[in-house]
Simulated assay, not measured.
Amino acid sequence: MSRIDESKDFIPVRIAVLTVSDTRTLADDRSGDTLVQRLTDAGHVLAARAITTDDRDGIASQLREWIADPEIDVILSTGGTGLTGRDVSVEAHRDVYEKEIDAFGTVFTMISMQKIGTSAVQSRATGGVAGGTYLFALPGSTGACKDAWDEILAFQLDYRHRPCNFVEIFPRLDEHKRRK
């Protein structure tokens, strides 16, 4: 349910998109393209984009690099969330999380159930926070990327969404690191 408070100004968020794939290039990265199109259509800023192979250390390294970049607020990765041996995006994300957003995976599964039934159990979509940056690992299918954006992220990354959203708590994500 979308509850947008039109009396508030929209605040653009700077978002990086990481595609995890052993076979994709920028020329044929449909899921990455889907995320880029949706985030820019919503008024957000594409802060960075990359493709990396299904390598846990390589994924975590890219995530850490972007977490350290003050010009990136959110990282969306697509691919590598399944059950096969090469699917290591979730593990790489959890290597860098300070806190996991447990309900993200739950809500994503609920949405997926409506679209693909019990096949939703094969997705391990996850979300978390590190270094004041939100991170979300999404499945590699364009449908899953659309669902995650259209049904969850479009609202939670919109400052006007009520009763609460991720944007309004950006300033407090790293408050535990500040001197009291």
Rank of each mutant, 00 (worst) to 15 (best):
Glu65Thr: 15
Asp57Cys: 01
Met1Lys: 13
Thr52Gln: 10
Thr84Ala: 05
Met113Phe: 08
Gly79Arg: 08
Glu65Asn: 14
Asp5Val: 04
Leu26Val: 08
Arg172Glu: 06
Ile67Arg: 02
His93Trp: 04
Gln37Thr: 12
Ala42Thr: 13
Leu173Cys: 06
Arg124Cys: 07
Arg94Tyr: 01
Ser123Ala: 07
Val88Met: 00
Asp87His: 01
Ala125Phe: 07
Ser77Lys: 02
Ile67Trp: 06
Gly43Pro: 05
Ser21Gln: 07
Trp149Val: 11
Val121His: 00
Arg162Ile: 08
Lys177Ala: 15
Leu138Cys: 08
Arg24Glu: 12
Gly79Met: 10
Ser21Val: 07
Asp28Asn: 15
Thr52Pro: 01
Arg56Thr: 02
Lys177Asp: 09
Arg160Glu: 08
Ser2Leu: 07
Phe166Leu: 11
Ala47Glu: 11
Gly105Gln: 04
Asp95Trp: 07
Gly82Glu: 01
Glu71Ser: 14
Lys115Val: 10
Pro12Glu: 03
Thr78Gly: 05
Val90Leu: 02
Asp147Arg: 02
Thr19Ser: 11
Met110His: 08
Ala47Asn: 05
Ser61Gly: 10
Ala148Lys: 08
Phe136Ser: 08
Ile15Gly: 07
His176Phe: 06
Asp158Pro: 09
Val90Arg: 02
His44Trp: 02
Lys115Met: 08
Asp9Phe: 00
Arg94Val: 03
Asn165Tyr: 03
Leu35Tyr: 14
Lys146Gln: 15
Arg38Tyr: 14
Arg179His: 12
Met110Glu: 09
Gly32Arg: 07
Ala103Ser: 11
Arg56Gln: 11
Asp28Met: 07
Phe170Pro: 00
Ala154Trp: 03
Glu98Met: 07
Lys180Asp: 13
Asp102Glu: 15
Ile116Asn: 02
Gly105Pro: 00
Arg14His: 03
Gly132Arg: 05
Val129Ala: 09
Ala47Gln: 11
Glu6Trp: 13
Gly80Ala: 14
Glu175His: 11
Ala47His: 09
Ile51Tyr: 04
Ser31Asp: 10
Leu173Lys: 04
Glu98Arg: 13
Asp55Trp: 00
His161Asn: 15
Glu100Ser: 11
Gln114Met: 02
Thr84Pro: 00
Ala68Gln: 13
Ile111Ser: 00
Val129Thr: 06
Gln37Ser: 15
Trp66Asp: 03
Thr142Cys: 04
Leu63Glu: 08
Tyr134Cys: 04
Ile59Val: 06
Ser112Cys: 14
Leu18Cys: 04
Ile72Gln: 03
His176Leu: 08
Phe155Val: 13
Ser61Leu: 09
Pro171Arg: 01
Asp174Leu: 09
Asp102Lys: 09
Val20Met: 02
Leu135Trp: 06
Leu76Thr: 00
Cys145Glu: 05
Ser31Cys: 13
Asp5Met: 13
Phe108Thr: 02
Asp28His: 06
Thr23Glu: 13
Ser21Lys: 05
Ala27Pro: 08
Asp73Leu: 10
Ala120Phe: 01
Val74Arg: 05
Pro163Trp: 14
Leu138Gly: 06
Gly131Thr: 13
Leu39Ser: 04
Gln37Val: 03
Leu46Ala: 04
Arg64Lys: 14
Pro139Ile: 08
Phe155Cys: 10
Lys180Gln: 12
